[in-house]
């Protein structure tokens, strides 16, 4: 083949591959499934990889959804993203919208709502301590979960 023919073939291949790529990106986007598999939390102390599938599946730790998604108890309404109730930063006097979906503002007045980091931290360490499994808590054990 001559150089010109090579060039024509290369451009033809490039155009076809570009079309395939557009179809792949447009028709098969990678989305988070309804029940998350793994979640990565980016914190000031590095990232934390939480294996949601391992914690919730019967072949893993077999936790029920409501063991962690705790409010309101015994209600599927609790199966919402944690950050809907626990924002990244709690602003004084500002109540998350998710709370007002079920509560009147005066009903939850004065309720202390931990921010997302504190809520997750309490949830993880509390459960690990309760069951005596998983990475231990304590200031000497940060790097057992946090990838610095």
């Amino acid at each position: 083949m001559t150089s010109k023919k090579h060039r024509t073939v290369a451009y033809a291949v490039a155009v076809h591959l570009l079309l395939v790529a557009i179809v792949c990106y447009a028709a098969f986007p990678v989305t988070q499934p309804e029940k998350p598999i793994r979640l990565v939390y980016w914190t000031n102390a590095g990232k934390v990889l939480f294996n949601h599938e391992l914690h919730s599946s019967d072949t893993g730790f077999g936790l029920s959804c409501l063991d962690c998604h705790h409010h309101p108890p015994d209600d599927d309404q609790a199966l919402m993203a944690c950050s809907q109730c626990h924002p990244q930063k709690v602003k004084d006097g500002v109540t998350p919208k998710a709370c007002l979906d079920c509560h009147d503002a005066d009903e939850i007045e004065g309720t202390e709502l931990p921010n997302k980091s504190d809520a997750f931290h309490g949830q993880c360490t509390g459960c690990h301590e309760q069951f005596g499994k998983g990475p231990p808590s304590g200031s000497d054990n940060c790097s057992k979960c946090h990838v610095m």
Partner: peptide, 19 residues
């Protein structure tokens, strides 16, 4: 499929960028 999209886009865009 997502990997196919990345590979196809990488190869095609590199050819087109160089051209």
């Amino acid at each position: 499929v997502p990997a196919l999209g990345v590979i196809c886009l990488a190869v095609s865009s590199a050819i087109l960028w160089e051209g």
